[in-house]
Design a protein around this nucleic acid. Structure first.
Lengths: 186, 186
DNA sequence: TATCGTCATGTCAGTTTCTGACATCAGATC
DNA sequence: GATCTGATGTCAGAAACTGACATGACGATA
Protein backbone atom coordinates (compact mmCIF):
# COMPACT_ATOMS: atom_id res chain seq x y z
CA UNK A 1 0.00 0.00 0.00
CA UNK A 2 2.20 2.81 1.17
CA UNK A 3 4.88 3.53 3.68
CA UNK A 4 2.38 4.10 6.48
CA UNK A 5 0.36 1.98 8.84
CA UNK A 6 -2.64 0.68 6.92
CA UNK A 7 -6.17 1.30 8.06
CA UNK A 8 -5.99 5.05 8.44
CA UNK A 9 -9.72 5.26 7.78
CA UNK A 10 -10.60 2.90 10.61
CA UNK A 11 -8.17 4.53 13.03
CA UNK A 12 -9.76 7.89 12.28
CA UNK A 13 -13.23 6.51 12.94
CA UNK A 14 -12.13 5.00 16.26
CA UNK A 15 -10.27 8.13 17.34
CA UNK A 16 -13.26 10.27 16.40
CA UNK A 17 -15.89 8.44 18.42
CA UNK A 18 -13.53 8.26 21.39
CA UNK A 19 -12.91 11.99 21.32
CA UNK A 20 -16.56 12.80 20.76
CA UNK A 21 -17.41 10.77 23.84
CA UNK A 22 -14.65 12.41 25.88
CA UNK A 23 -15.07 16.06 24.91
CA UNK A 24 -18.19 16.29 22.81
CA UNK A 25 -18.52 16.81 19.06
CA UNK A 26 -18.07 20.58 18.92
CA UNK A 27 -15.12 20.62 21.30
CA UNK A 28 -13.26 18.11 19.14
CA UNK A 29 -11.41 19.46 16.11
CA UNK A 30 -10.52 17.45 13.06
CA UNK A 31 -6.89 18.13 13.94
CA UNK A 32 -7.44 16.42 17.31
CA UNK A 33 -8.85 13.35 15.60
CA UNK A 34 -6.01 13.22 13.09
CA UNK A 35 -3.37 13.43 15.82
CA UNK A 36 -4.89 10.56 17.78
CA UNK A 37 -5.14 8.48 14.61
CA UNK A 38 -1.53 9.25 13.77
CA UNK A 39 -2.20 11.00 10.48
CA UNK A 40 -2.53 14.59 9.29
CA UNK A 41 -5.66 16.65 9.08
CA UNK A 42 -5.44 16.52 5.31
CA UNK A 43 -5.69 12.75 5.37
CA UNK A 44 -8.88 13.01 7.40
CA UNK A 45 -10.52 15.05 4.68
CA UNK A 46 -9.33 12.61 2.05
CA UNK A 47 -11.08 9.80 3.90
CA UNK A 48 -14.22 11.69 4.90
CA UNK A 49 -15.91 14.47 3.01
CA UNK A 50 -16.60 16.40 6.19
CA UNK A 51 -16.30 16.14 9.94
CA UNK A 52 -19.70 14.53 10.43
CA UNK A 53 -19.07 11.80 7.89
CA UNK A 54 -16.60 10.02 10.15
CA UNK A 55 -19.58 8.72 12.14
CA UNK A 56 -21.54 7.67 9.07
CA UNK A 57 -19.12 6.31 6.54
CA UNK A 58 -20.18 4.79 3.26
CA UNK A 59 -23.91 4.01 3.29
CA UNK A 60 -23.66 1.75 0.24
CA UNK A 61 -23.43 -1.54 2.09
CA UNK A 62 -26.09 -0.50 4.60
CA UNK A 63 -28.60 0.59 1.98
CA UNK A 64 -27.81 -2.47 -0.13
CA UNK A 65 -28.88 -4.69 2.76
CA UNK A 66 -32.37 -3.29 2.33
CA UNK A 67 -32.49 -2.94 -1.44
CA UNK A 68 -30.96 -6.34 -2.15
CA UNK A 69 -33.59 -7.98 0.02
CA UNK A 70 -36.32 -6.06 -1.79
CA UNK A 71 -34.92 -7.15 -5.13
CA UNK A 72 -34.53 -10.74 -3.98
CA UNK A 73 -38.11 -11.07 -2.80
CA UNK A 74 -40.28 -13.42 -4.89
CA UNK A 75 -41.79 -11.79 -7.96
CA UNK A 76 -45.28 -12.40 -6.66
CA UNK A 77 -44.55 -10.70 -3.32
CA UNK A 78 -46.39 -7.43 -2.73
CA UNK A 79 -44.35 -4.26 -2.08
CA UNK A 80 -45.18 -4.55 1.59
CA UNK A 81 -43.99 -8.16 1.70
CA UNK A 82 -40.76 -7.15 0.00
CA UNK A 83 -40.26 -4.48 2.63
CA UNK A 84 -40.84 -7.02 5.39
CA UNK A 85 -38.07 -9.11 3.86
CA UNK A 86 -35.84 -6.03 3.84
CA UNK A 87 -36.49 -5.38 7.54
CA UNK A 88 -35.49 -8.93 8.43
CA UNK A 89 -32.33 -8.63 6.37
CA UNK A 90 -31.46 -5.26 7.87
CA UNK A 91 -31.72 -6.72 11.34
CA UNK A 92 -28.84 -9.00 10.44
CA UNK A 93 -26.71 -6.02 9.46
CA UNK A 94 -26.55 -4.94 13.11
CA UNK A 95 -26.01 -8.39 14.60
CA UNK A 96 -23.31 -8.19 17.23
CA UNK A 97 -23.02 -4.42 16.84
CA UNK A 98 -25.30 -3.52 19.72
CA UNK A 99 -22.56 -2.09 21.98
CA UNK A 100 -21.13 0.06 19.21
CA UNK A 101 -24.60 1.15 18.09
CA UNK A 102 -25.32 2.37 21.62
CA UNK A 103 -22.16 4.46 21.76
CA UNK A 104 -22.76 5.89 18.32
CA UNK A 105 -26.39 6.69 19.06
CA UNK A 106 -25.42 8.46 22.28
CA UNK A 107 -22.95 10.67 20.43
CA UNK A 108 -25.34 11.46 17.60
CA UNK A 109 -28.28 12.36 19.79
CA UNK A 110 -26.10 14.85 21.66
CA UNK A 111 -25.55 17.08 18.64
CA UNK A 112 -27.93 18.81 16.25
CA UNK A 113 -25.62 18.64 13.25
CA UNK A 114 -25.22 14.90 13.68
CA UNK A 115 -28.94 14.34 14.15
CA UNK A 116 -29.45 16.24 10.93
CA UNK A 117 -27.02 13.99 9.11
CA UNK A 118 -28.75 10.94 10.53
CA UNK A 119 -32.08 12.13 9.18
CA UNK A 120 -30.56 12.60 5.76
CA UNK A 121 -29.25 9.06 5.88
CA UNK A 122 -32.77 7.90 6.55
CA UNK A 123 -34.17 9.94 3.69
CA UNK A 124 -31.65 8.42 1.32
CA UNK A 125 -32.46 4.95 2.54
CA UNK A 126 -36.14 5.60 1.96
CA UNK A 127 -35.40 6.79 -1.55
CA UNK A 128 -33.27 3.72 -2.25
CA UNK A 129 -35.98 1.36 -1.05
CA UNK A 130 -38.60 3.19 -3.09
CA UNK A 131 -36.44 2.82 -6.18
CA UNK A 132 -35.97 -0.89 -5.53
CA UNK A 133 -39.72 -1.25 -5.24
CA UNK A 134 -40.28 0.62 -8.48
CA UNK A 135 -37.85 -1.73 -10.19
CA UNK A 136 -40.12 -4.55 -9.08
CA UNK A 137 -42.95 -2.82 -10.88
CA UNK A 138 -44.61 -0.96 -8.02
CA UNK A 139 -46.18 2.37 -9.04
CA UNK A 140 -44.16 5.36 -7.82
CA UNK A 141 -46.62 6.60 -5.16
CA UNK A 142 -47.04 3.09 -3.74
CA UNK A 143 -43.28 2.61 -3.73
CA UNK A 144 -42.71 5.94 -1.96
CA UNK A 145 -45.22 5.31 0.77
CA UNK A 146 -44.37 1.68 1.34
CA UNK A 147 -40.73 2.66 1.65
CA UNK A 148 -41.68 5.32 4.20
CA UNK A 149 -43.66 2.75 6.11
CA UNK A 150 -40.62 0.49 6.16
CA UNK A 151 -38.16 3.11 7.38
CA UNK A 152 -40.55 4.49 9.97
CA UNK A 153 -40.96 0.98 11.33
CA UNK A 154 -37.25 0.27 11.21
CA UNK A 155 -36.26 3.44 13.01
CA UNK A 156 -38.88 3.07 15.70
CA UNK A 157 -37.70 -0.51 16.15
CA UNK A 158 -34.06 0.59 16.18
CA UNK A 159 -34.81 3.11 18.90
CA UNK A 160 -36.32 0.39 21.07
CA UNK A 161 -33.51 -2.03 20.24
CA UNK A 162 -30.72 0.40 21.06
CA UNK A 163 -32.42 1.48 24.29
CA UNK A 164 -32.45 -2.08 25.61
CA UNK A 165 -29.55 -3.25 27.74
CA UNK A 166 -29.15 -6.55 25.97
CA UNK A 167 -29.14 -7.18 22.25
CA UNK A 168 -32.35 -8.66 20.84
CA UNK A 169 -33.42 -9.64 17.32
CA UNK A 170 -33.70 -6.31 15.55
CA UNK A 171 -35.17 -7.76 12.36
CA UNK A 172 -38.00 -9.49 14.18
CA UNK A 173 -38.65 -6.39 16.23
CA UNK A 174 -38.86 -4.23 13.10
CA UNK A 175 -41.34 -6.60 11.49
CA UNK A 176 -43.40 -6.51 14.66
CA UNK A 177 -43.40 -2.70 14.71
CA UNK A 178 -44.41 -2.67 11.07
CA UNK A 179 -47.38 -4.82 11.96
CA UNK A 180 -48.34 -2.42 14.71
CA UNK A 181 -48.18 0.49 12.30
CA UNK A 182 -50.29 -1.26 9.70
CA UNK A 183 -52.91 -2.10 12.28
CA UNK A 184 -52.89 1.50 13.44
CA UNK A 185 -53.73 3.00 10.04
CA UNK A 186 -56.00 0.21 8.80
CA UNK B 1 -34.56 51.48 15.96
CA UNK B 2 -30.91 52.09 15.23
CA UNK B 3 -28.93 54.35 13.02
CA UNK B 4 -29.23 52.05 10.01
CA UNK B 5 -31.79 51.22 7.37
CA UNK B 6 -34.35 48.87 8.90
CA UNK B 7 -35.07 45.46 7.41
CA UNK B 8 -31.54 44.13 7.25
CA UNK B 9 -32.85 40.58 7.52
CA UNK B 10 -35.13 40.94 4.51
CA UNK B 11 -32.47 42.71 2.44
CA UNK B 12 -30.09 39.86 3.18
CA UNK B 13 -32.65 37.27 2.08
CA UNK B 14 -33.34 39.14 -1.17
CA UNK B 15 -29.65 39.67 -1.89
CA UNK B 16 -28.92 36.02 -1.18
CA UNK B 17 -31.46 34.51 -3.55
CA UNK B 18 -30.43 36.95 -6.27
CA UNK B 19 -26.78 36.05 -5.94
CA UNK B 20 -27.51 32.33 -5.73
CA UNK B 21 -29.41 32.62 -8.99
CA UNK B 22 -26.66 34.66 -10.63
CA UNK B 23 -23.57 32.73 -9.53
CA UNK B 24 -24.75 29.61 -7.76
CA UNK B 25 -24.74 28.82 -4.06
CA UNK B 26 -21.13 27.72 -3.68
CA UNK B 27 -19.74 30.58 -5.72
CA UNK B 28 -21.50 33.11 -3.50
CA UNK B 29 -19.82 34.05 -0.24
CA UNK B 30 -21.56 35.42 2.79
CA UNK B 31 -19.44 38.54 2.34
CA UNK B 32 -20.93 38.97 -1.15
CA UNK B 33 -24.44 38.75 0.23
CA UNK B 34 -23.66 41.22 3.02
CA UNK B 35 -22.20 43.76 0.60
CA UNK B 36 -25.25 43.66 -1.64
CA UNK B 37 -27.53 44.01 1.37
CA UNK B 38 -25.50 46.94 2.63
CA UNK B 39 -24.41 45.36 5.91
CA UNK B 40 -21.37 43.54 7.20
CA UNK B 41 -20.73 39.82 7.21
CA UNK B 42 -21.06 39.80 10.98
CA UNK B 43 -24.62 41.08 10.70
CA UNK B 44 -25.47 38.23 8.36
CA UNK B 45 -24.48 35.71 11.00
CA UNK B 46 -26.46 37.55 13.61
CA UNK B 47 -29.58 37.24 11.46
CA UNK B 48 -29.01 33.69 10.21
CA UNK B 49 -27.28 30.88 12.05
CA UNK B 50 -25.51 29.74 8.90
CA UNK B 51 -25.33 30.40 5.20
CA UNK B 52 -28.09 27.94 4.28
CA UNK B 53 -30.56 29.43 6.73
CA UNK B 54 -31.02 32.57 4.65
CA UNK B 55 -33.19 30.53 2.28
CA UNK B 56 -35.23 28.89 5.03
CA UNK B 57 -35.78 31.44 7.74
CA UNK B 58 -37.92 30.76 10.76
CA UNK B 59 -40.09 27.66 10.24
CA UNK B 60 -42.39 28.51 13.15
CA UNK B 61 -45.15 30.13 11.13
CA UNK B 62 -44.97 27.51 8.41
CA UNK B 63 -45.19 24.56 10.79
CA UNK B 64 -47.91 26.30 12.78
CA UNK B 65 -50.07 26.43 9.65
CA UNK B 66 -50.18 22.65 9.76
CA UNK B 67 -50.28 22.09 13.49
CA UNK B 68 -52.88 24.77 14.16
CA UNK B 69 -55.16 23.16 11.60
CA UNK B 70 -54.64 19.76 13.21
CA UNK B 71 -55.46 21.21 16.62
CA UNK B 72 -58.49 23.07 15.28
CA UNK B 73 -60.05 19.98 13.67
CA UNK B 74 -63.26 18.77 15.34
CA UNK B 75 -62.65 16.52 18.32
CA UNK B 76 -64.41 13.64 16.58
CA UNK B 77 -62.22 13.90 13.47
CA UNK B 78 -59.86 10.99 12.89
CA UNK B 79 -56.11 11.68 12.69
CA UNK B 80 -56.32 11.31 8.93
CA UNK B 81 -59.15 13.83 8.73
CA UNK B 82 -57.16 16.25 10.87
CA UNK B 83 -54.24 15.88 8.47
CA UNK B 84 -56.52 16.56 5.52
CA UNK B 85 -57.53 19.81 7.22
CA UNK B 86 -53.86 20.64 7.68
CA UNK B 87 -53.13 20.10 4.00
CA UNK B 88 -55.92 22.45 2.98
CA UNK B 89 -54.66 25.07 5.43
CA UNK B 90 -51.07 24.68 4.25
CA UNK B 91 -52.15 25.29 0.69
CA UNK B 92 -53.25 28.75 1.78
CA UNK B 93 -49.80 29.46 3.17
CA UNK B 94 -48.37 29.47 -0.35
CA UNK B 95 -51.18 31.43 -1.97
CA UNK B 96 -49.70 34.06 -4.26
CA UNK B 97 -46.18 32.84 -3.60
CA UNK B 98 -45.91 30.65 -6.66
CA UNK B 99 -43.33 32.78 -8.49
CA UNK B 100 -41.11 33.03 -5.44
CA UNK B 101 -41.54 29.33 -4.67
CA UNK B 102 -40.32 28.49 -8.17
CA UNK B 103 -37.20 30.59 -7.82
CA UNK B 104 -36.47 29.20 -4.40
CA UNK B 105 -37.04 25.62 -5.49
CA UNK B 106 -34.74 26.07 -8.47
CA UNK B 107 -31.94 27.30 -6.23
CA UNK B 108 -32.41 24.59 -3.64
CA UNK B 109 -32.51 21.69 -6.08
CA UNK B 110 -29.20 22.86 -7.54
CA UNK B 111 -27.24 22.24 -4.36
CA UNK B 112 -26.82 19.20 -2.14
CA UNK B 113 -26.36 21.16 1.09
CA UNK B 114 -29.59 23.03 0.47
CA UNK B 115 -31.49 19.87 -0.42
CA UNK B 116 -30.27 18.42 2.83
CA UNK B 117 -31.58 21.38 4.78
CA UNK B 118 -34.89 21.08 2.97
CA UNK B 119 -35.21 17.45 4.00
CA UNK B 120 -34.55 18.39 7.60
CA UNK B 121 -37.28 20.97 7.40
CA UNK B 122 -39.62 18.25 6.24
CA UNK B 123 -38.60 15.94 9.07
CA UNK B 124 -39.26 18.67 11.61
CA UNK B 125 -42.63 19.37 10.07
CA UNK B 126 -43.51 15.69 10.27
CA UNK B 127 -42.50 15.62 13.93
CA UNK B 128 -44.57 18.73 14.65
CA UNK B 129 -47.65 17.25 13.00
CA UNK B 130 -47.18 13.97 14.84
CA UNK B 131 -47.02 15.84 18.13
CA UNK B 132 -50.17 17.79 17.29
CA UNK B 133 -51.92 14.49 16.55
CA UNK B 134 -50.74 13.01 19.82
CA UNK B 135 -52.15 16.00 21.65
CA UNK B 136 -55.49 15.13 20.08
CA UNK B 137 -55.20 11.71 21.67
CA UNK B 138 -53.80 9.69 18.77
CA UNK B 139 -51.47 6.87 19.82
CA UNK B 140 -47.83 7.64 19.05
CA UNK B 141 -47.37 5.12 16.22
CA UNK B 142 -50.58 6.23 14.52
CA UNK B 143 -49.57 9.84 14.90
CA UNK B 144 -46.12 9.21 13.43
CA UNK B 145 -47.36 7.37 10.40
CA UNK B 146 -50.32 9.63 9.70
CA UNK B 147 -47.99 12.60 9.87
CA UNK B 148 -45.63 10.87 7.41
CA UNK B 149 -48.56 10.22 5.11
CA UNK B 150 -49.45 13.90 5.27
CA UNK B 151 -45.98 15.23 4.52
CA UNK B 152 -45.36 12.70 1.77
CA UNK B 153 -48.59 13.80 0.13
CA UNK B 154 -47.85 17.47 0.64
CA UNK B 155 -44.38 17.30 -0.82
CA UNK B 156 -45.42 15.27 -3.80
CA UNK B 157 -48.21 17.77 -4.35
CA UNK B 158 -45.84 20.69 -3.89
CA UNK B 159 -43.52 19.24 -6.53
CA UNK B 160 -46.36 19.10 -9.02
CA UNK B 161 -47.61 22.55 -8.03
CA UNK B 162 -44.24 24.23 -8.37
CA UNK B 163 -43.56 22.51 -11.69
CA UNK B 164 -46.70 23.98 -13.22
CA UNK B 165 -46.45 27.28 -15.08
CA UNK B 166 -49.51 28.77 -13.49
CA UNK B 167 -50.48 28.72 -9.85
CA UNK B 168 -53.20 26.24 -8.93
CA UNK B 169 -54.88 25.36 -5.62
CA UNK B 170 -52.10 23.64 -3.68
CA UNK B 171 -54.30 22.59 -0.78
CA UNK B 172 -56.79 20.83 -3.03
CA UNK B 173 -53.97 19.19 -4.93
CA UNK B 174 -52.40 17.90 -1.72
CA UNK B 175 -55.69 16.42 -0.57
CA UNK B 176 -56.05 14.73 -3.94
CA UNK B 177 -52.53 13.26 -3.74
CA UNK B 178 -53.26 12.03 -0.23
CA UNK B 179 -56.28 10.21 -1.61
CA UNK B 180 -54.13 8.61 -4.30
CA UNK B 181 -51.66 7.45 -1.69
CA UNK B 182 -54.34 5.97 0.52
CA UNK B 183 -55.83 4.09 -2.38
CA UNK B 184 -52.37 2.84 -3.30
CA UNK B 185 -51.70 1.20 0.04
CA UNK B 186 -55.22 0.06 0.82
C1' DT C 1 -32.48 70.27 27.55
C1' DA C 2 -29.28 67.00 29.29
C1' DT C 3 -28.19 62.51 30.57
C1' DC C 4 -28.57 57.69 30.34
C1' DG C 5 -29.68 53.08 28.81
C1' DT C 6 -30.84 50.15 24.97
C1' DC C 7 -29.62 47.52 21.12
C1' DA C 8 -28.76 46.61 16.35
C1' DT C 9 -24.81 47.14 13.97
C1' DG C 10 -19.75 47.84 13.03
C1' DT C 11 -14.97 46.48 13.79
C1' DC C 12 -11.49 43.24 14.45
C1' DA C 13 -9.00 39.28 15.69
C1' DG C 14 -9.17 34.63 15.82
C1' DT C 15 -10.49 29.51 15.26
C1' DT C 16 -12.04 25.86 12.44
C1' DT C 17 -13.52 23.64 8.38
C1' DC C 18 -12.35 22.39 3.95
C1' DT C 19 -9.61 22.61 -0.68
C1' DG C 20 -5.91 22.82 -4.25
C1' DA C 21 -1.19 22.07 -5.63
C1' DC C 22 2.81 19.79 -5.22
C1' DA C 23 6.32 16.72 -2.85
C1' DT C 24 7.54 12.18 -0.96
C1' DC C 25 8.41 7.41 -0.76
C1' DA C 26 7.19 2.09 0.08
C1' DG C 27 5.86 -1.39 -2.63
C1' DA C 28 4.24 -3.46 -7.01
C1' DT C 29 5.47 -4.06 -11.95
C1' DC C 30 8.39 -4.85 -15.59
C1' DG D 1 17.23 -1.65 -10.90
C1' DA D 2 14.20 1.76 -13.27
C1' DT D 3 9.52 3.12 -13.30
C1' DC D 4 4.94 3.62 -11.94
C1' DT D 5 1.29 3.91 -8.53
C1' DG D 6 -1.14 5.65 -4.84
C1' DA D 7 -1.69 6.93 -0.18
C1' DT D 8 0.12 10.28 2.60
C1' DG D 9 2.66 14.65 3.98
C1' DT D 10 3.37 19.63 3.51
C1' DC D 11 1.88 24.11 2.77
C1' DA D 12 -0.85 28.02 1.61
C1' DG D 13 -5.20 29.84 1.49
C1' DA D 14 -10.34 30.65 1.09
C1' DA D 15 -14.48 30.76 3.47
C1' DA D 16 -17.54 29.82 7.41
C1' DC D 17 -18.36 31.08 11.84
C1' DT D 18 -17.54 33.21 16.81
C1' DG D 19 -16.31 36.24 20.76
C1' DA D 20 -15.23 40.75 22.57
C1' DC D 21 -15.65 45.30 22.42
C1' DA D 22 -16.86 49.93 20.24
C1' DT D 23 -20.32 53.02 18.18
C1' DG D 24 -24.18 55.90 17.75
C1' DA D 25 -29.34 56.82 16.85
C1' DC D 26 -33.26 56.58 19.55
C1' DG D 27 -36.37 56.53 23.43
C1' DA D 28 -37.02 57.30 28.28
C1' DT D 29 -36.35 59.91 32.26
C1' DA D 30 -35.13 63.77 35.16
Amino acid sequence: MGRWQPGARERLAVAAIELFEERGYDATTVADIAVRAGVTERTFFRQYADKREVLFGDPTAYNATFTDAVAAAPAEATPLEAVVAALRAAGGFFEGRHPYARRRTAVITSNAALLEREQIKRVHLTDAIAEALRERGAPAPVAALTAELGTVAFHQAFARWVAADVETDLGALAVQVLGELRAAIA
